[in-house]
């Protein structure tokens, strides 16, 4: 059960990475820090300013979206065609953000208020925290919404076209400049969504983003770069494996399973479960 909840959140975080990889061929190493940023925003608005909880969630995600667009415009745009610099830039950005958080918020964990208190009995078997159940529901809802947007809307069609063949999409009149900006912002917003959903369960600290980003990357490689279904399946697999595995090994080694999976994927099927042969 815990595995499923965590898996959904992993999938949500990985979805943002995968979207950006599929369209722009850029890996955002600051993904985890944006997750943390949204957590801090929601903490700030709801706890320190005393805003309505739902409002502060929405504003937090929207601000991260704007921040993502800003990053794309300032840092990523000049690096198109040179993946090395986008890797270096986003890595430096992640360290800068970590240290900025440390300076502003301090090393203590911060926790926005929980949405619902108490626990529910699940299937008459065990008790489970309501907050985690809510996270599951909202996470699944956001993932469904992303899929609907990609499959059904005009924007989704453009996204799919550009990730299949970028030049062809450009020839057909897609403005890839705006598309890049929007999809990078959307990728960041998805990281932010995962952040606000999970922050009440796992409090945010300045360096907690590294683990989140690493897990998201493992999920993306497992599912196949640029594949959205791969993210969902990969996220669930990783969530379940980690939780089952932690029962056998010490919890300190929980994150090692992700790495083992990463190595296995690279050994056996480097393109991932649903991946294209080339990216």
């Amino acid at each position: 059960m815990n595995g499923v909840v965590i898996g959904v959140i992993y999938a949500l975080a990985a979805l943002g990475v995968s979207l950006v990889v599929g369209i722009m061929n850029v890996i955002n190493f600051a993904h985890g820090e944006l997750y943390i940023l949204a957590g801090y925003f929601s903490f700030l608005f709801a706890d320190a300013l005393g805003w309505n909880m739902y409002l502060s969630l929405a504003v937090a995600v929207f601000l991260v979206f704007l921040f993502g667009i800003f990053i794309e415009y300032i840092l990523i745009r000049p690096t198109y065609g040179n993946e090395m610099y986008s890797l270096i830039l986003t890595f430096i950005l992640s360290i800068v953000l970590q240290n900025a958080y440390l300076l502003i918020f301090g090393p203590y964990p911060n926790k926005p208020p929980t949405w619902i208190k108490g626990a529910t009995e699940v299937f008459g078997l065990f008790f489970y925290g309501n907050q985690r159940l809510a996270a599951l529901v909202v996470g699944a809802f956001v993932i469904t919404a992303v899929f609907l947007v990609i499959k059904l809307t005009w924007f989704g069609k453009i996204v799919r076209a550009a990730s299949q063949d970028r030049e062809m999409a450009e020839l057909n009149g897609v403005n890839t400049l705006y598309l890049n900006m929007l999809s990078f912002g959307l990728g960041c917003a998805l990281a932010g969504a995962a952040g606000v959903i999970l922050a009440p369960v796992f409090p945010v600290t300045p360096t907690a983003g590294v683990q989140v980003a690493l897990t998201a990357f493992v999920v993306v490689v497992l599912g196949g770069m640029g594949s959205l279904w791969g993210c969902v399946v990969g996220g669930l697999v990783l969530g379940l494996v980690e939780n089952l595995g932690a029962a056998f090994l010490s919890t300190g080694y929980k994150h090692i399973f992700g790495f083992i999976i990463l190595i296995l994927v690279l050994l056996i099927r480097p393109a991932g479960l649903f991946g294209r042969k080339e990216i």
């Binding site: 080694y253 990463l262 393109a271």
Partner: peptide, 27 residues
């Protein structure tokens, strides 16, 4: 392991590797 697949995979794997090494050393 990862250079068959190109540069992005190397960056991802090495990032994971250094984090895993840190976990092993502290544990």
């Amino acid at each position: 392991l990862c250079l068959r697949m190109g540069g992005i995979y190397l960056s991802l794997t090495t990032l994971g590797f250094s984090e895993i090494l840190r976990i092993i050393i502290t544990n």
